[in-house]
């Protein structure tokens, strides 16, 4: 086994195990901390796909922004840590059947889909290509997305304002 493969499996293991902790932990703040390692693991997987820019963006946006907000929200909520998160399941039969169907459907799709394969060559420069695509080929979707985000920002500002 090559060194690269060993690192890949460590990253995968960290991602999957911490993702499981996010779901199964009874303590909300432990779930949030486990999410940190999941997000870092996913960033590591991006690196293995030579998507360095996406990997760093993932860390900057999800860890530095969203996860901080999640933990912040948990800390600001009164006594949320004493709430026992229950994982009681109801209607196990039907639920299990649906889960199995989704699993089989997704698995068969993964194996059948005609995946777009990229040549296994490390790209020289990723940022320049992404910038060109965003500002030339996909300029309209990019601008529409920015208007949408601006609307969301203004909505949040309006909601958080004190009503006179």
């Amino acid at each position: 086994m090559s060194g690269q493969l060993i690192i890949f499996w460590i990253v995968t293991l960290v991602t999957v195990l911490s993702a499981a902790t996010v779901v199964f932990s009874k303590n909300l703040i432990y779930s949030a901390v486990a999410l940190l390692f999941t997000l870092l693991g996913v960033a590591g997987l991006y690196v293995f796909l030579w998507a360095d820019f996406i990997a760093v963006t993932q860390i900057l946006i999800y860890v530095g922004g969203i996860l901080v907000l999640i933990i912040f929200g948990i800390m600001l909520t009164h006594r949320i840590t004493s709430v026992r998160l229950s994982h009681s399941s109801m209607q196990r039969g039907i639920g299990g059947a649906i889960v199995l169907m989704i699993f089989v459907g997704l698995t068969s799709m993964i194996f059948r889909a005609p995946w777009y394969r990229v040549a296994a060559v490390e790209p020289q420069e990723t940022v320049r290509q992404i910038g060109r695509l965003l500002m030339v080929d996909y300029l309209l979707p990019f601008e529409v997305a920015s208007v949408l985000l601006l609307a969301a920002l203004m909505g949040a500002a309006l909601l958080s304002r004190k009503v006179n």
Binding site: V33, I59, V63, G64, G65, V127
Partner: peptide, 25 residues
């Protein structure tokens, strides 16, 4: 040495906040 060094340093700087929040909590 990599192509997005500056962006990487900014991202890593934002990870440290989690440590501060956890320490306080």
């Amino acid at each position: 040495d990599f192509n997005i060094g500056l962006f990487y340093i900014l991202a890593m700087g934002s990870v440290g906040v989690i440590g501060i929040i956890l320490a306080g909590y």
